[in-house]
């Protein structure tokens, strides 16, 4: 792994290591992915019959979504604390903070599961209305991002992380910084999804 150049050390031309440049380019593409869907939301809302989005939006569970917002914010701070712990050579604290981040991700998914199933029980599906179509598309894509991130978080919580820590501490800290950037982005997307879908 160490044979791949510029994973940890900065490239002279960009002033960045490739891991960080790579994740930021990926996140820029993610901005355009979610941006397209946000744009679709605005497009559909403008074209929808008056009161349609208000009616269907009122069927969403605001307390559950508020709770999930707090959960994601907590997971973001524990994620960055896990990176800081590695920088301070405190591996046990790293495991603890990353463990809390994983629990937060699971809690978010459990709440989302109850939110979705309560809709289905009342016969509300993506096909029920334009609002529900864009709601399930946006939140569903976001949930897929949470699940994807969760796999990476769990990987860095297993024995693999212990091994990496023993072999190359800087490499693990770099990996966690990169994972953190992705995780904070997922939080960032939710920060905008929450008011647009649940509160407007």
């Amino acid at each position: 792994m160490s044979n791949i150049p510029y994973i940890l050390e900065d490239r002279p031309d960009t002033g960045l290591n490739n891991s960080k440049l790579g994740i930021w380019i990926f996140l820029a593409s993610e901005v355009m992915l979610f941006g397209g869907l946000f744009s679709a939301y605005v497009f559909l809302r403008i074209a929808a019959p008056e009161g349609d989005f208000d009616y269907w939006g009122s069927k969403l569970n605001v307390p559950m979504a508020t709770f999930n917002t707090m959960v994601l914010i907590t997971s973001s701070v524990t994620m960055v604390m896990s990176w800081a712990s590695l920088k301070l050579q405190q591996f046990d604290k790293y495991k603890m903070y990353l463990g809390i981040t994983i629990l937060c991700a699971l809690a978010f998914l459990v709440v989302k599961y109850f939110e979705y199933t309560s809709k289905f029980e009342y016969g509300v599906y993506p096909s029920s209305s334009t609002f529900m179509g864009i709601y399930f598309t946006l939140t569903g894509l976001h949930v897929l991002h949470i699940i994807g991130g969760l796999f990476v978080l769990v990987y860095f919580w297993t024995k693999q992380a212990d091994k990496m820590w023993e072999e190359n501490q800087d490499l693990l800290a770099n990996r966690i910084e990169i994972t953190g950037l992705y995780w904070h982005f997922v939080d960032l997307v939710w920060i905008f999804l929450f008011p647009i879908l649940y509160l407007l």
Binding site: T14, G15, L16, A28, M32, G35, I46
Partner: peptide, 23 residues
């Protein structure tokens, strides 16, 4: 680093274009 800031600035511009298309 500036490389990231400039890349994100370019992303922001294209994002805003995307958002203004419906308007």
């Amino acid at each position: 680093k500036k490389a990231i800031i400039w890349m994100l600035a370019a992303t922001l511009v294209t994002f805003l274009i995307l958002m203004f298309i419906p308007l």
